[in-house]
Simulated scan of single mutants.
Amino acid sequence: MLRLWLEPADLTRIRFADRLHPAGTVLLAGQALRQPAVAAALPALTRRVAASAPALRPLHHLVPPRGFVPDFLTPWEGLTSIEDGLEAIRSTPAGRVRAEVTAAYANTEVSDARSRFAAADPEVLDTLVTAMRDYFHQVLAPDWTALNRTHRQAVSEAASRYALSGADGVLTGLHPAIRWRAPVLEVGAWQDGEVRLGGHGLLLLPSPFAGPRPRVLTGPDQPALVVYPVEPPAVPDGPRPGADPLAGLVGRTRSAVLVQVTAPGRHTTSTIARQVGISVSSSSEHLSALRAAGLVSSRRDGGAIVHRATALCRDLVN
């Protein structure tokens, strides 16, 4: 049992990760999809793992099938892309690699590759990084949107609980293995101990690959990261329909306007009309409807009306 002590300042710094961490998700999925229950719940991903087995073998050999994973393999950095995360892993100091891999291998059978990894052999680390890249692109990338959608849904539900019952409601409803007994958050993680957050707060990350127990990552001058299990997403098991689901909801033209208004740049009624391929009057009509629904905000800038996507619009498009 890991006990996290929250001071009043920590309670004001509870937040959710705004997206899944690509490299961190690879490590979690690399363990989770080796467990029969998770594999059965996500058959499409499981088949991709089997089809890519030779390329993924270094990952499966070097990372234990369950339990503790070296912290440096789930870096704080690299949230933007898989390459950023892999670069953060590759730049880990050798001393930290040796210490964390040795601890992770405490109950693991010794092999030549594992011994070299525990000795911070850069060639073995490069082999692992290559396998992680392959895992992301071959197994996770086809359903990365669905995985992030599951994440956003869990965050939205937590936000609703916060609106009704504050921090107590959020911390109480995370997961059966997480108990909130103010001022202590008890987490049934893989490690034991007592950690005082010291005002740095708590970063929460729901994940379908967290495993049977929540994961906790702590570091100096960092919030405590708590990764906790949620239900796997509804990933299609078979050929994917080519239709745009947003277009099915609001229509093809309005979907195109929504997507365009979330793109970078300055958007006026005329520029959206030109980019979507519709008349200015049609563009104005669609934007008026979206503004009435709270999906677009508009303001006059000189002789033009400039439109911006609201947070709700970005969530819908994502």
Rank of each mutant, 00 (worst) to 15 (best):
A154W: 04
V139A: 01
T150K: 15
A120G: 10
S165M: 11
E123A: 15
S160H: 13
E157L: 13
D143Y: 11
S165Q: 14
A120C: 11
L140D: 00
R149K: 12
R133F: 07
S165T: 12
E157Q: 12
T150S: 15
A154N: 03
R161Y: 07
V139S: 01
L125Y: 00
L164K: 13
A163D: 11
S115F: 06
A118E: 03
A118Y: 02
W144A: 03
R116T: 02
V155K: 06
L147F: 02
V139C: 03
P122F: 10
A163L: 12
V129K: 00
L164H: 14
A119F: 04
D121W: 05
R161Q: 12
E123M: 14
Y162L: 14
M132A: 07
M132N: 03
D143A: 09
S156A: 15
Y162P: 01
A119G: 13
E157R: 14
A158P: 03
A159Q: 11
T145K: 14
H137Q: 06
A120Y: 06
V124F: 01
D134R: 13
D134C: 11
T130L: 09
A146Q: 13
H137P: 00
S115Y: 05
S115T: 15
F117N: 01
W144I: 02
R133A: 10
A158M: 10
R133I: 04
L128Y: 02
R114T: 04
L164D: 14
V124M: 03
Q153F: 10
T150C: 15
R114V: 02
A113M: 11
L164T: 14
Q138S: 09
R161F: 06
S165P: 05
R149L: 11
A146K: 09
D134M: 08
D126A: 14
Q153I: 10
V139T: 01
Q138R: 13
T127W: 09
A118T: 05
A131M: 04
A120S: 13
A159P: 03
F136A: 02
V129I: 08
E157V: 08
P122T: 08
A118V: 03
P122H: 08
R161E: 09
P122S: 10
F117T: 00
F117E: 00
D143V: 09
Q153W: 11
L147V: 03
A131N: 03
P142D: 04
S160Y: 12
A159S: 11
A163M: 08
R114I: 01
A146M: 11
A113V: 07
E157M: 10
L147D: 00
P142G: 03
A141N: 07
R114L: 06
S156L: 14
S165I: 05
V124Q: 03
D143K: 06
A141I: 03
M132V: 05
T145C: 10
R133Y: 06
R116A: 09
W144P: 00
R133G: 06
H137I: 02
R161A: 11
D121P: 04
T150I: 10
V139D: 01
R152H: 15
D126P: 04
D121G: 07
R149P: 00
E157S: 09
D121C: 08
E123T: 15
F136T: 00
A154M: 07
